[in-house]
Protein backbone atom coordinates (compact mmCIF):
# COMPACT_ATOMS: atom_id res chain seq x y z
CA UNK A 1 0.00 0.00 0.00
CA UNK A 2 1.32 3.39 -0.81
CA UNK A 3 0.60 6.70 -2.35
CA UNK A 4 1.33 8.25 -5.67
CA UNK A 5 1.54 11.86 -6.75
CA UNK A 6 -0.60 13.11 -9.59
CA UNK A 7 2.64 14.16 -11.30
CA UNK A 8 3.99 10.58 -11.30
CA UNK A 9 0.67 9.22 -12.49
CA UNK A 10 0.67 11.76 -15.34
CA UNK A 11 4.26 11.02 -16.36
CA UNK A 12 3.72 7.27 -16.39
CA UNK A 13 0.40 7.37 -18.22
CA UNK A 14 0.58 10.38 -20.47
CA UNK A 15 1.09 8.31 -23.58
CA UNK A 16 -0.57 5.07 -22.53
CA UNK A 17 -3.85 6.77 -21.66
CA UNK A 18 -3.38 9.65 -24.10
CA UNK A 19 -3.82 12.14 -21.29
CA UNK A 20 -4.11 15.85 -21.76
CA UNK A 21 -3.67 18.18 -18.80
CA UNK A 22 -6.44 20.71 -19.22
CA UNK A 23 -6.18 22.76 -16.04
CA UNK A 24 -5.00 22.81 -12.45
CA UNK A 25 -1.24 22.47 -13.09
CA UNK A 26 -0.61 23.94 -9.66
CA UNK A 27 -1.85 20.78 -7.94
CA UNK A 28 0.45 18.24 -9.54
CA UNK A 29 1.99 17.41 -6.17
CA UNK A 30 -1.38 16.17 -4.86
CA UNK A 31 -1.43 12.52 -3.87
CA UNK A 32 -3.86 9.66 -3.97
CA UNK A 33 -3.72 6.53 -1.89
CA UNK A 34 -6.54 4.38 -3.19
CA UNK A 35 -6.78 2.03 -6.14
CA UNK A 36 -10.47 2.95 -6.50
CA UNK A 37 -11.99 5.40 -8.91
CA UNK A 38 -15.01 7.46 -7.89
CA UNK A 39 -17.78 8.85 -10.06
CA UNK A 40 -19.19 11.76 -8.09
CA UNK A 41 -22.74 11.64 -9.48
CA UNK A 42 -24.48 11.87 -6.12
CA UNK A 43 -22.00 14.37 -4.73
CA UNK A 44 -22.88 16.72 -7.60
CA UNK A 45 -26.52 16.61 -6.55
CA UNK A 46 -25.49 17.67 -3.07
CA UNK A 47 -25.29 14.36 -1.22
CA UNK A 48 -21.78 14.45 0.18
CA UNK A 49 -22.21 12.37 3.36
CA UNK A 50 -20.11 9.41 2.29
CA UNK A 51 -18.28 11.18 -0.48
CA UNK A 52 -14.96 9.45 -1.16
CA UNK A 53 -13.25 12.63 -2.26
CA UNK A 54 -9.74 11.25 -1.71
CA UNK A 55 -10.08 9.02 -4.76
CA UNK A 56 -9.51 9.94 -8.37
CA UNK A 57 -12.73 11.57 -9.57
CA UNK A 58 -14.09 10.51 -12.91
CA UNK A 59 -16.65 12.53 -14.81
CA UNK A 60 -18.19 10.33 -17.51
CA UNK A 61 -21.02 10.87 -19.95
CA UNK A 62 -23.75 10.87 -17.29
CA UNK A 63 -22.10 13.49 -15.12
CA UNK A 64 -21.15 15.65 -18.09
CA UNK A 65 -24.63 15.51 -19.59
CA UNK A 66 -26.10 16.43 -16.22
CA UNK A 67 -23.71 19.38 -15.90
CA UNK A 68 -24.26 20.52 -19.48
CA UNK A 69 -28.01 20.71 -18.98
CA UNK A 70 -27.77 22.95 -15.92
CA UNK A 71 -27.98 26.72 -16.33
CA UNK A 72 -24.64 28.49 -15.96
CA UNK A 73 -25.14 29.72 -12.39
CA UNK A 74 -26.54 26.45 -11.09
CA UNK A 75 -23.68 24.56 -12.76
CA UNK A 76 -21.08 26.56 -10.87
CA UNK A 77 -22.91 25.89 -7.61
CA UNK A 78 -23.08 22.17 -8.42
CA UNK A 79 -19.38 21.97 -9.25
CA UNK A 80 -18.72 23.87 -6.05
CA UNK A 81 -20.20 20.91 -4.18
CA UNK A 82 -17.26 18.72 -5.14
CA UNK A 83 -14.64 21.45 -5.32
CA UNK A 84 -15.07 22.22 -1.63
CA UNK A 85 -13.15 18.97 -1.03
CA UNK A 86 -9.46 18.21 -1.36
CA UNK A 87 -9.73 16.13 -4.54
CA UNK A 88 -6.54 14.52 -5.89
CA UNK A 89 -7.50 15.06 -9.54
CA UNK A 90 -10.43 14.98 -11.94
CA UNK A 91 -10.65 13.07 -15.18
CA UNK A 92 -13.19 13.86 -17.88
CA UNK A 93 -13.64 10.91 -20.23
CA UNK A 94 -15.16 10.56 -23.67
CA UNK A 95 -15.72 13.30 -26.16
CA UNK A 96 -17.51 15.53 -23.71
CA UNK A 97 -16.79 19.24 -24.05
CA UNK A 98 -15.58 20.76 -20.80
CA UNK A 99 -18.37 23.01 -19.52
CA UNK A 100 -17.74 26.59 -18.45
CA UNK A 101 -16.61 26.93 -14.88
CA UNK A 102 -14.87 23.57 -14.58
CA UNK A 103 -11.43 24.66 -15.82
CA UNK A 104 -11.62 27.90 -13.82
CA UNK A 105 -12.43 26.01 -10.63
CA UNK A 106 -9.68 23.49 -11.29
CA UNK A 107 -7.14 26.27 -11.77
CA UNK A 108 -8.42 28.19 -8.77
CA UNK A 109 -8.29 25.22 -6.38
CA UNK A 110 -5.18 23.76 -8.03
CA UNK A 111 -6.83 20.42 -8.74
CA UNK A 112 -5.43 18.87 -11.93
CA UNK A 113 -8.02 18.20 -14.62
CA UNK A 114 -7.21 15.57 -17.25
CA UNK A 115 -8.82 14.52 -20.47
CA UNK A 116 -7.88 11.13 -21.87
CA UNK A 117 -8.72 10.19 -25.45
CA UNK A 118 -10.60 7.07 -24.33
CA UNK A 119 -14.27 6.55 -23.60
CA UNK A 120 -15.26 5.94 -19.97
CA UNK A 121 -15.38 2.10 -19.96
CA UNK A 122 -12.13 1.66 -21.82
CA UNK A 123 -10.42 4.30 -19.73
CA UNK A 124 -11.67 2.82 -16.44
CA UNK A 125 -10.36 -0.58 -17.47
CA UNK A 126 -6.89 0.67 -18.43
CA UNK A 127 -6.66 2.95 -15.43
CA UNK A 128 -7.70 0.19 -13.01
CA UNK A 129 -4.96 -2.08 -14.34
CA UNK A 130 -2.45 0.65 -13.60
CA UNK A 131 -3.85 1.39 -10.13
CA UNK A 132 -3.96 -2.33 -9.22
CA UNK A 133 -0.29 -2.57 -10.05
CA UNK A 134 0.68 0.58 -8.14
CA UNK A 135 -1.31 -0.24 -5.02
CA UNK A 136 -0.78 -4.01 -5.02
CA UNK A 137 0.43 -5.34 -1.65
CA UNK A 138 4.15 -5.98 -1.95
CA UNK A 139 6.79 -8.02 -0.20
CA UNK A 140 10.54 -8.41 -0.66
CA UNK A 141 11.90 -11.91 -0.15
CA UNK A 142 15.38 -13.36 0.04
CA UNK A 143 15.46 -16.08 -2.61
CA UNK A 144 15.55 -16.72 -6.34
CA UNK A 145 12.76 -16.95 -8.85
CA UNK A 146 13.19 -19.11 -11.95
CA UNK A 147 10.73 -19.96 -14.71
CA UNK A 148 11.06 -23.74 -15.09
CA UNK A 149 8.93 -25.19 -17.92
CA UNK A 150 6.67 -22.17 -17.54
CA UNK A 151 6.21 -22.66 -13.80
CA UNK A 152 7.45 -19.93 -11.47
CA UNK A 153 9.57 -21.66 -8.81
CA UNK A 154 10.57 -19.55 -5.84
CA UNK A 155 13.68 -20.95 -4.14
CA UNK A 156 14.17 -20.00 -0.52
CA UNK A 157 16.53 -21.09 2.21
CA UNK A 158 19.36 -19.80 4.34
CA UNK A 159 22.10 -17.61 2.95
CA UNK A 160 24.68 -19.52 0.86
CA UNK A 161 22.74 -22.78 0.76
CA UNK A 162 23.04 -22.72 -3.03
CA UNK A 163 20.05 -20.86 -4.41
CA UNK A 164 22.10 -18.87 -6.93
CA UNK A 165 24.02 -21.95 -8.07
CA UNK A 166 20.73 -23.76 -8.58
CA UNK A 167 19.34 -20.82 -10.55
CA UNK A 168 22.45 -20.78 -12.73
CA UNK A 169 22.25 -24.53 -13.30
CA UNK A 170 18.60 -24.22 -14.35
CA UNK A 171 19.45 -21.36 -16.73
CA UNK A 172 22.19 -23.55 -18.22
CA UNK A 173 19.52 -26.17 -18.92
CA UNK A 174 17.40 -23.67 -20.82
CA UNK A 175 15.14 -22.28 -18.11
CA UNK A 176 14.71 -18.58 -17.41
CA UNK A 177 16.00 -16.51 -14.54
CA UNK A 178 13.58 -13.91 -13.20
CA UNK A 179 15.35 -12.69 -10.07
CA UNK A 180 18.13 -13.78 -7.79
CA UNK A 181 18.72 -12.86 -4.18
CA UNK A 182 15.99 -10.26 -3.92
CA UNK A 183 12.55 -11.13 -5.21
CA UNK A 184 9.83 -8.51 -5.13
CA UNK A 185 6.42 -10.14 -4.96
CA UNK A 186 3.16 -8.30 -5.47
CA UNK A 187 -0.35 -9.61 -5.17
CA UNK A 188 -2.47 -9.04 -8.22
CA UNK A 189 -6.20 -9.41 -8.36
CA UNK A 190 -7.69 -12.90 -8.01
CA UNK A 191 -4.90 -14.11 -5.78
CA UNK A 192 -2.08 -14.09 -8.29
CA UNK A 193 1.43 -13.55 -6.97
CA UNK A 194 3.74 -11.82 -9.41
CA UNK A 195 7.47 -11.82 -8.83
CA UNK A 196 10.20 -9.69 -10.31
CA UNK A 197 13.72 -8.59 -9.54
CA UNK A 198 15.20 -5.33 -8.48
CA UNK A 199 16.00 -2.80 -11.21
CA UNK A 200 19.55 -2.25 -9.97
CA UNK A 201 20.45 -5.94 -9.85
CA UNK A 202 18.89 -6.82 -13.23
CA UNK A 203 19.76 -10.53 -13.60
CA UNK A 204 23.16 -10.28 -11.99
CA UNK A 205 23.92 -13.00 -9.50
CA UNK A 206 26.74 -13.85 -7.19
CA UNK A 207 28.47 -17.22 -7.21
CA UNK A 208 30.72 -17.88 -4.24
CA UNK A 209 34.31 -17.97 -5.32
CA UNK A 210 33.60 -16.41 -8.72
CA UNK A 211 31.86 -13.14 -7.99
CA UNK A 212 29.22 -11.30 -9.95
CA UNK A 213 27.79 -12.97 -13.06
CA UNK A 214 25.68 -11.10 -15.60
CA UNK A 215 23.23 -13.78 -16.70
CA UNK A 216 21.79 -11.78 -19.56
CA UNK A 217 25.24 -11.10 -21.07
CA UNK A 218 26.53 -14.62 -20.56
CA UNK A 219 23.47 -16.59 -21.66
CA UNK A 220 21.62 -14.05 -23.78
CA UNK A 221 18.17 -12.60 -23.62
CA UNK A 222 16.57 -16.05 -23.90
CA UNK A 223 17.82 -16.91 -20.42
CA UNK A 224 15.89 -14.20 -18.62
CA UNK A 225 12.37 -13.03 -17.87
CA UNK A 226 11.37 -9.72 -16.39
CA UNK A 227 8.51 -11.05 -14.30
CA UNK A 228 6.80 -14.33 -13.62
CA UNK A 229 3.90 -15.60 -11.59
CA UNK A 230 5.12 -17.26 -8.38
CA UNK A 231 3.52 -20.73 -8.36
CA UNK A 232 5.51 -23.01 -6.06
CA UNK A 233 7.86 -22.28 -3.18
CA UNK A 234 10.81 -24.65 -3.00
CA UNK A 235 12.61 -24.38 0.31
CA UNK A 236 16.16 -25.70 0.43
CA UNK A 237 17.18 -26.94 3.87
CA UNK A 238 20.29 -28.58 5.25
CA UNK A 239 19.90 -32.32 5.54
CA UNK A 240 18.99 -33.25 9.08
CA UNK A 241 18.47 -36.90 9.89
CA UNK A 242 16.08 -36.06 12.70
CA UNK A 243 13.78 -34.17 10.36
CA UNK A 244 10.75 -35.72 8.73
CA UNK A 245 10.77 -35.18 4.97
CA UNK A 246 7.93 -35.77 2.59
CA UNK A 247 8.05 -39.32 1.25
CA UNK A 248 4.85 -39.76 -0.74
CA UNK A 249 3.62 -36.30 -1.69
CA UNK A 250 0.02 -37.29 -0.93
CA UNK A 251 -0.60 -34.44 1.45
CA UNK A 252 -0.05 -31.10 -0.22
CA UNK A 253 1.83 -28.57 1.85
CA UNK A 254 1.05 -24.93 1.28
CA UNK A 255 2.59 -21.64 2.26
CA UNK A 256 0.83 -18.31 2.52
CA UNK A 257 2.50 -15.35 0.83
CA UNK A 258 0.60 -12.05 1.03
CA UNK A 259 -2.46 -14.12 2.02
CA UNK A 260 -2.26 -16.20 -1.14
CA UNK A 261 -1.69 -19.92 -0.65
CA UNK A 262 0.72 -21.68 -2.99
CA UNK A 263 2.17 -25.21 -2.80
CA UNK A 264 5.41 -25.54 -0.90
CA UNK A 265 8.04 -28.24 -1.26
CA UNK A 266 10.90 -28.66 1.21
CA UNK A 267 14.03 -30.25 -0.23
CA UNK A 268 16.80 -31.43 2.07
CA UNK A 269 20.17 -30.98 0.41
CA UNK A 270 23.64 -32.38 0.90
CA UNK A 271 26.82 -32.14 -1.18
CA UNK A 272 26.55 -33.83 -4.53
CA UNK A 273 22.76 -33.97 -4.64
CA UNK A 274 21.28 -33.00 -7.99
CA UNK A 275 18.72 -30.38 -7.05
CA UNK A 276 18.38 -29.13 -10.61
CA UNK A 277 16.62 -32.29 -11.75
CA UNK A 278 14.47 -32.22 -8.64
CA UNK A 279 13.48 -28.63 -9.42
CA UNK A 280 12.45 -29.69 -12.92
CA UNK A 281 10.40 -32.54 -11.50
CA UNK A 282 8.66 -30.17 -9.09
CA UNK A 283 7.69 -27.94 -12.02
CA UNK A 284 6.51 -30.89 -14.13
CA UNK A 285 4.54 -32.34 -11.23
CA UNK A 286 2.89 -28.98 -10.76
CA UNK A 287 1.91 -28.92 -14.44
CA UNK A 288 0.46 -32.43 -14.11
CA UNK A 289 -1.63 -31.34 -11.15
CA UNK A 290 -2.89 -28.26 -12.95
CA UNK A 291 -4.06 -30.53 -15.76
CA UNK A 292 -5.87 -32.72 -13.25
CA UNK A 293 -3.36 -35.45 -12.43
CA UNK A 294 -2.03 -36.12 -8.97
CA UNK A 295 0.75 -38.71 -9.30
CA UNK A 296 0.96 -39.59 -5.62
CA UNK A 297 -2.81 -39.89 -5.14
CA UNK A 298 -3.25 -41.89 -8.35
CA UNK A 299 -0.49 -44.28 -7.40
CA UNK A 300 -2.01 -44.73 -3.97
CA UNK A 301 -5.42 -45.38 -5.51
CA UNK A 302 -3.96 -48.19 -7.63
CA UNK A 303 -2.19 -49.55 -4.59
CA UNK A 304 -5.38 -49.55 -2.54
CA UNK A 305 -7.26 -51.33 -5.31
CA UNK A 306 -4.58 -54.00 -5.51
CA UNK A 307 -4.70 -54.53 -1.76
CA UNK A 308 -8.47 -54.83 -1.85
CA UNK A 309 -8.29 -57.34 -4.71
CA UNK A 310 -5.73 -59.48 -2.96
CA UNK A 311 -7.77 -59.50 0.15
CA UNK A 312 -10.81 -60.70 -1.73
CA UNK A 313 -8.83 -63.44 -3.49
CA UNK A 314 -7.34 -64.78 -0.31
CA UNK A 315 -10.64 -64.65 1.47
CA UNK A 316 -10.83 -62.94 4.77
CA UNK A 317 -8.58 -65.48 6.40
CA UNK A 318 -6.55 -63.17 8.59
CA UNK A 319 -8.10 -61.73 11.66
CA UNK A 320 -9.92 -58.45 11.23
Amino acid sequence: MGEITVETFFKQNRRRLALELVAGQGGMDRKFTSAEIHRPGLALTGFVELYTFDRVQLLGNTEMLYLAELPEKKRRETLGMIFQFDLPCIIVTGNNPIPGGLTELADQQAIPLFKPRFATTKFTHLFSLYLDDIFAPRLTLHGSLVDVYGVGLLFTGRSSIGKSELALDLVERGHHLVADDVVIISRRSQGILMGKGNDILRHHLEIRGVGIVDVEKVFGVRAIRLQKRVQVEVELVDWDENMDYERTGIDDKVVSILDVEIPKVTIPIYPGKNITVIAEIIALNYLLRVSGHHPAKEFNKKLLELIKKRRRQEGVSFSE
Binding site: T140, H142, S160, D180, D181, V182, N198, I200, L205
Partner: peptide, 16 residues
Protein backbone atom coordinates in the same frame (compact mmCIF):
# COMPACT_ATOMS: atom_id res chain seq x y z
CA UNK B 1 10.85 0.08 2.63
CA UNK B 2 13.73 -2.06 1.42
CA UNK B 3 15.04 -4.80 3.69
CA UNK B 4 18.00 -6.86 2.52
CA UNK B 5 20.03 -9.69 3.97
CA UNK B 6 23.44 -8.41 5.12
CA UNK B 7 25.01 -11.74 4.16
CA UNK B 8 24.05 -11.32 0.51
CA UNK B 9 26.35 -9.15 -1.56
CA UNK B 10 23.76 -8.55 -4.26
CA UNK B 11 21.25 -7.43 -1.68
CA UNK B 12 23.74 -5.07 -0.06
CA UNK B 13 24.76 -3.57 -3.39
CA UNK B 14 21.13 -3.17 -4.33
CA UNK B 15 20.78 -0.54 -1.63
CA UNK B 16 23.14 1.64 -3.69
Amino acid sequence: DLEVNAKSIMGVMMLA
